[in-house]
């Protein structure tokens, strides 16, 4: 159980924990904005796991100069970069649709929205 091992796996554990907590929140919360918040948490967790999948300890950030020889994988970072911006746009759409739905049903509680029952 070296420090490097702990460093490497604590990142993955954080990402997995965030995904599971966000999923639990999406399934069990009742206020529509709480569901949007849980969705954002799960999004953050997925981004963490994606970046972690290209991460190797004891390497440098992928910016090459004369002193850097070994770097981490730049591909997951590039994908996550776009994923974060799209995530916030999707969250904005989620909030707007949620506001409209709560206006229509008169309450922010999803138990009063017939279309969202499960």
């Amino acid at each position: 159980m070296s420090a490097e091992y702990l460093f490497y796996w604590s990142m993955a554990a954080t990402g997995l924990g965030l995904v599971l907590i966000g999923l639990w929140g999406v399934l069990t919360r009742k206020h529509i904005l709480r569901i949007a918040l849980a969705f954002t948490l799960a999004d953050t967790g997925v981004n963490l796991i994606l970046v972690w999948s290209g991460f190797l300890p004891n390497r440098a950030a992928p910016i090459i100069d004369s002193s850097v020889t070994t770097v981490v994988d730049p591909l997951p970072q590039a994908l996550v970069l776009t994923s974060i911006v799209i995530g916030v746009a999707v969250a904005a759409l989620f909030v707007v649709v949620g506001v409209l739905a709560s206006r229509k049903s008169g309450s922010a509680d999803i138990r009063h929205m017939k279309e969202l029952r499960w």
């Binding site: 992928p62 910016i63 090459i64 100069d65 770097v71 994988d73 730049p74 591909l75 590039a78 970069l81």
Partner: peptide
């Protein structure tokens, strides 16, 4: 990408090169 990125694209920051 890490081996040939700088020669291929001329960009020092490999993340920008990939994006």
């Amino acid at each position: 990408y890490t081996q040939t990125g700088v020669e291929d694209t001329g960009s020092v920051n490999l993340v920008t090169a990939v994006v």
